[in-house]
Simulated assay, not measured.
Amino acid sequence: MEFSKVLKSFLFAIAVCLTFLAHAQPGSVANAKWPKQSVRIIVTFTPGGAPDILARVLSESWQQNLGVPVLVENKPGYGGNIGADLVAKSEPDGYT
């Protein structure tokens, strides 16, 4: 039961990310020469679980396609609030 909740949450997060990517305008400032530095993926679950494994598999293909390192960081705790707080307080540059 817990695994299905985790999987549903992670799939929802990916769907939200894909929605934002679909709305990106070609040639806009947001798409100009991105990325210039490494990209971080914050996983709000412990290492070794399904969300972590999926993030690491995706990061490998993103790293090949983007040409920059894609780092996966696990920040579990408080129902995902630690990782969400880290993302909320990070620079709004699109790299986290």
Rank of each mutant, 00 (worst) to 15 (best):
L21Y: 09
S61A: 02
G48P: 04
R56Q: 12
H23P: 02
G83Q: 10
W34E: 00
V70S: 01
I42H: 00
M1W: 08
G48E: 09
L71S: 11
V43A: 06
V43G: 02
P47M: 06
L7V: 03
N81L: 11
R56Y: 01
R56M: 10
K89N: 12
L54S: 10
A32P: 05
D85E: 13
A13C: 04
C17H: 02
V6Y: 08
T19M: 13
H23N: 13
S28F: 05
S28E: 13
G83D: 05
I41C: 06
A50K: 04
P26T: 06
N31Y: 04
M1Y: 04
I53A: 09
R40W: 07
F12G: 06
A55C: 08
V70P: 01
F3H: 08
R40E: 07
Q63S: 14
N65M: 02
I53T: 14
T44K: 10
L11C: 05
D52S: 14
H23I: 11
N74F: 14
S61I: 01
V43W: 03
I14K: 13
F12T: 05
V16Y: 07
G83F: 08
G77H: 09
Q37D: 03
K75A: 15
P26Q: 09
A24I: 13
T96K: 01
N65A: 07
A32Y: 14
V6S: 14
V39Y: 00
A55S: 12
S61Y: 03
P26W: 04
L21C: 09
L86V: 12
L7M: 03
K5I: 04
K75Q: 15
F12P: 01
I82H: 09
V6Q: 11
I41Y: 00
L71I: 15
D85P: 02
V70C: 00
P69H: 06
F20I: 13
K75G: 03
V29I: 11
L58E: 01
K33R: 15
N74K: 10
K33P: 14
V87H: 03
Q63W: 01
V68I: 01
V29E: 15
S38N: 11
D93E: 07
S28K: 10
Q37M: 05
V16T: 09
N31P: 07
P35Q: 06
Q37Y: 08
D93C: 10
A88I: 14
E91H: 09
L71N: 12
A55R: 02
T44Q: 08
A13T: 01
P35R: 02
S9C: 05
